[in-house]
Design a protein around this nucleic acid. Structure first.
Lengths: 181, 181
DNA sequence: GTCTATATAGCGATAGAC
DNA sequence: GTCTATCGCTATATAGAC
């Protein structure tokens, strides 16, 4: 990992942020360069082609997912409650990476689809020992997918989304726990 | 409704299909025109600007959703089983329209986001009388969202998706019915 | 390592013939 | 109602100065 150049990370942050808030089409080299505070040429020194930008983003996603799975295994409230709770996005690094990857996947980028599928399978494997059977597992997985999808629909970060929060979220977690364990 | 021109419908079909299978970026006027079997000029006679294409698509979605809600109200198996079952995409007209609108929404198109939110609210209102409480309603809605999202991820129509089908789907519906009623 | 300048291609949209 | 030709703009990518 030996300390990647700062500018490189800033560019990747900018790319991710534009993908989330304005979509794939808006994430042009010029827009990303401007948001990162470099020139187009400067950007292309770090990422020779546009494809390298998405590759970098998917690698970052991978690392964050690995971390998250460890946290999930050790969560005091248990993996299910942890999983459902953290499926409501708070805008942290993992949330941003997932949403950005989702934009690329919907744009037809095959490697993004693969990365998201693998992420999902890793979660599935981690949750399996904590649920009653496969049907219960599917219910938890799909519910989480639904939470992510709803939040990802608008990247503007407004809170008028139909996502349950606070009290409603706690009740939902309770119901899910009762249903799947 | 007085019989819209055939070419117009063919163009709209082509636009929808490319959005679903290749994403927003691939749905250029030229690609749509070619798939519809007309020239760029011919396309632009029916849809003066590209925005009109997405408007036409969202109107089509609206009509299909209205039909579907009626079917859901009258479903012999009850609205919940109907809703969960039909959330697994079979590639019918409504499925295609929803996925296409989802691509536009993820591309940052505000009117597509609104159309999808309104669709969801209509479903929510229709299902409310059939469930125990608001928490149960949220569980059903989110599960359905998850099913749609998973299928929409790759528009290639392959069946290697993690979506439950046949036996697994029936068991899931059973579990959901038991949980929310 | 970052910049400006530029090449090349493809986009949405217009004009006008048929 | 559909076509071809073309305009103006913007996208990705390259070249070469600093």
């Amino acid at each position: 990992m030996a300390r990647p150049p700062l500018a490189r990370e800033r560019v990747l942050d900018a790319y991710e942020q534009i993908l989330v808030s304005e979509g794939e089409r808006a994430a042009t080299l010029e827009a990303v360069a401007k948001a990162a505070g470099v020139s187009k040429g400067g950007l292309l020194y770090h990422f020779a082609a546009k494809e390298d930008l998405s590759t970098g983003l998917l690698q970052r996603l991978d690392a964050l997912v690995t971390e998250d799975v460890e946290l999930m295994k050790q969560a005091p409230e248990g993996p299910i409650a942890y999983y459902v709770r953290t499926s409501v996005m708070e805008g942290d690094a993992l949330d941003r990476a997932i949403t950005a990857a989702s934009r690329l996947a919907q744009g037809g980028q095959a490697d993004a689809v693969v990365a998201l599928r693998e992420m999902r399978m890793l979660w599935e494997t981690t949750l399996r020992p904590a649920v009653r059977d496969e049907t219960a597992l599917q219910l938890v997985m799909l519910l989480s997918d639904g939470l992510y999808y709803n939040n990802a629909l608008d990247g503007t970060g407004d809170l008028s989304t139909p996502t349950p929060r606070d009290g409603a979220l706690e009740k939902l977690i309770e119901l899910v726990e009762r249903t799947v364990t």
